[in-house]
Design a binder for these strands. Structure first.
Lengths: 122, 122
DNA sequence: TAACTGTACTAATAGTCATAGTACAGTTAT
DNA sequence: ATAACTGTACTATGACTATTAGTACAGTTA
């Protein structure tokens, strides 16, 4: 369910956050689904429980997960919509990336091609 | 020449690196131009000399600048070409960003519009 | 009651970023 | 030659983050 690269420069908890968000967006995780517990996932990924908790807290704060003390951690009801809103903020990222690539003289068609192929997969 | 945000999450030396690269790509800095000295720039930006040196070292390693002990730091002869090559690597970044946005259901047209407006500026 | 759940702490380690200070060697103009 | 510049190298320190480690508490469920 999760693929963790321990020696990556991107923190483990961020890997869990982004991979969870991907699973929600791709429909693998649906609203109400129970997530693995903090302890069990920490054992399965050979990672400290605190690292998992940090990831779950972040996802809870973003409205993707809903943690219930004593019961477990569940996918929030409007997780998909929340993520779409959050992703819209990434358009700024795309804009500045396109700015640099344009400045570097990369042909516009190459960028368009990247976009096209990303949408063809679906 | 440089606009530094000291409390930004992106390190000061990285800000200098990326801003220098932008100046080279936009033609403000041309091959052979002498950069401000480590010490003078550190004073002007109210930053430690070591921070400037780290930025210049990085730019030297990327082939953008050419540091000559005793003389100064100069824009490398093929700085523009080096940067174009380096930027081509960022297409991967664009690809994964487009993947996420596509997955989130952001309309393809919005992404295309970002690309178009970036190239219209030029 | 026992075994699970999330949560909240503290402590310690490791790494990065930045500051601070010093020193050395090469270049240049006076 | 001297002074003033240049890049470079090095150590030490403080702040912050990521992570591991361990313990403890409160709610839930069979």
């Amino acid at each position: 369910m999760f693929q963790i690269q321990p020696y990556s420069p991107v923190p483990v908890y961020e890997q869990i956050v982004s991979q969870t968000e991907r699973l929600v967006l791709s429909g693998v995780l649906k609203a109400g689904d129970q997530m693995p517990s903090v302890r069990s996932l920490s054992i399965r990924l050979s990672v400290n429980p605190n690292t998992i908790q940090k990831a779950y807290n972040e996802l809870d704060a973003r409205g993707v997960l809903c943690a219930v003390p004593g019961k477990g951690c569940f996918v929030a009801v409007n997780a998909g919509e929340r993520l779409t809103e959050l992703c819209r903020g990434k358009l700024t990222e795309l804009r500045s990336l396109a700015d640099v690539l344009a400045l570097a003289g990369i042909p516009k068609e190459e960028l368009i091609q990247c976009i096209e192929s990303a949408y063809e997969k679906r």
